[in-house]
Structures are given as C-alpha cells and as structure tokens.
Design a binder for these strands. Structure first.
Lengths: 91, 91
DNA sequence: TAGATGTATTGAAATGTTTCGATATGTTCT
DNA sequence: AGAACATATCGAAACATTTCAATACATCTA
C-alpha cells in the first residue's frame, strides 16, 4: 500500500466524529444512512456530509446512492489492507 | 482501546514524514537516533524533534535516553493494540 | 410540474498543525 | 570549568482542517 494512501486513511481515522461513525456502522452490523448519522452525532448536516466524504474518499466506507438517500457500508477490505501495512512496520 | 487513544495514534500516523520515520525504523530492524533521522528526512532539527514527540506521545515508538542521544525503538505492542481496534470495526 | 425531502457544495470564521530560526537544556570531553 | 555536541522548547508564520449558514442539486410524491 502506498504511503500516500496510508496517510489518507490515517487522516480519516484521526477525528472523533469519524471514529464514532465507524463504530456506529459496526454496531448496527449493517449500513447507515446520512439521516441515521444525523441522530447519532451533534453536528449540522453539512459537517456530517464532510466527514462522510473523508471516510468515503479514504475508501474506509462505501457510499451507494439509493433514491434520494445514500447508503454507507463498511469496507472491510480496506481495513485489512491498512492493517497489513501497519503490521509490516513491526520490527 | 479508548477512542481518544485511537485518535491520537491515527493523528501520529497521518503525516508523510512520520510514516517515513516508522518505515526507516522497521528497515533498520533496530533502533534509530535523532541524528540518523536527520540524515533521512529533509527537515530541520526542531521539526524532526516535533515529529518524534508526536510518535512518542502516541506510544508508537519508545524513546530512551542514552547519554546525550535518544534511542528510538518501535513499540510493536501498541501497533498490535491499534490493529485490534481496527479489526474490531469490521462488520 | 410544483413542493417536499435528502444530500452536496460553497465560502468564511475558528481552530489546529507544521515548519523554522533562535535559544535553552542537558551531557560529554578536555 | 569551559567548549562542543545532541536534543528540546518557544514563538511566529504558513498551511490545513473543522464547522456552520446559505444555497444548490437531485429525487420522490402529490
């Protein structure tokens, strides 16, 4: 995995609200919609949209349009790749 | 692992220079001194000191004073803990 | 097609991070 | 003790991120 990509993923993970979103996504064991997240986190809609974009661009989550909603699901594969990079750092 | 800690580690990993330091530490399969890092990375001494502090405070590396030098070693344990948190996010 | 609903974008203020020069601190050597 | 060396801290400039109000865009429903 490219260092540039590792940096992007790390940045995406370096925010309490985004970590909260990921934890919720895990807890639900399923997908989430923007509106769900609005209820979980005390931020305005544009801020949440911004955070979801960061996570999506890092490919930690996958966004799928469903009518006028967007469905988000965890991208397990990307987590595995990131984890592999980290484990390879060990001495 | 606390979310606050995850955030701190992620932040420490979210910088190209710090990733470079970690990769070098791995490549050497041993420890590094500040002066080694000065040769690897094109930054001034205060900047490198700042980055090493971030990594040390995140406990990704361990700093040990050796006379007037400081020896840095990878903290494999912390990487494992961080990785465990990430894997637990998967759905 | 018009209004309602869900999400994205824009622009700007507030806040946080990175970087450096200058300088301080601590350690070794003579 | 004093010079030389290694690392840390301070203060400020440059840069990046977070947040929100306002507004745009896209889709559904009546």
């Amino acid at each position: 995995m490219e260092l540039k990509k590792v940096e992007k993923i790390s940045k995406a993970l370096a925010d309490p609200n985004r970590l909260q979103i990921l934890k919720s996504l895990h807890k639900k064991q399923a997908c989430l919609y923007c509106s769900d997240i609005n209820e979980l986190i005390d931020l305005t809609q544009p801020s949440i949209s911004h955070h979801l974009k960061q996570l999506t661009e890092a490919e930690l989550i996958i966004a799928e349009k469903e009518g006028r909603n967007v469905k988000y699901t965890m991208n397990n594969k990307m987590i595995d790749q990131y984890v592999s990079f980290l484990l390879a750092l060990k001495v």
